[in-house]
Amino acid sequence: MTLRRSSWALGLVSFVGLLAIWQAAVSAGLIGAYYVSSPIAVGEAFVAMLREGTIQRHFTASAISFLIAFAIATSAGVALGMAAGMFRTVERTLDPFVWFLYSTPAIALYPLFVAWLGFGRPTSVATAVMFALTPIYANTLTGVKNVSPQLMRMAHSFGARPMDLFVRIALPASVPLIVGGMQLGVGRALAGVLVAELFGANAGLGFSIAYNAQYMRTTKMMVFILLVIVCGLVLTRAMAAVSAMSDRWRT
């Protein structure tokens, strides 16, 4: 996604502007603080919860689930994608299952995970893996299939064995596309963790949003919503940076 052209300055303007409008609307009594809280209240609540360690606890809980899920989705997606890219039989075998996963909003399987794994981290992780797996798999597969035949031929001429072709040619040549898949997967894994936490967990950012909502604590809920939005932006930016680095390989 092209974000490059919108400069930092304009982004800052819109960010400060939104906060100002939000605060002004609440201060002027246009909207009840009950519905939207206010930037100042949110800021205060954030600092207070930071002191208590509440933020850290929930952030860590979500971060751990996210990292586990993302690691599983990435390793499984890359391994399956590589295998499918190298052997057409594997690709055809996986095809119907991939199609199923691709068309099914993974959330429909969430109650099944709850039935199997109960509420808590295993279910969050399983949901997030389902969310993130397909783009990583699909991108890896595309990457391997598009490895330059010239490179394969070159390696073959130097006596490369199948394992060499895999590790030294197909894998590194696919890195930019794998990273692209991971870029798509990051947002989806985050969504998977948060949605699962929203529905049933005892810790995490998603849990905190649902929990505070239950008690009509709009301000605290806002703190966690904004935190999630910031996490999403930071993760996406970080992946974009990784992607830019791996793109150098293509030139």
Binding site: Q150, M154, S157, F158, I169, P172, T251
Partner: peptide, 15 residues
């Protein structure tokens, strides 16, 4: 190993 090919440049590993 008794033979080796000098290819055109597109066969260098870019990474």
């Amino acid at each position: 190993p008794d033979r080796a090919i000098v290819f055109q440049d597109a066969s260098l590993l870019p990474w």
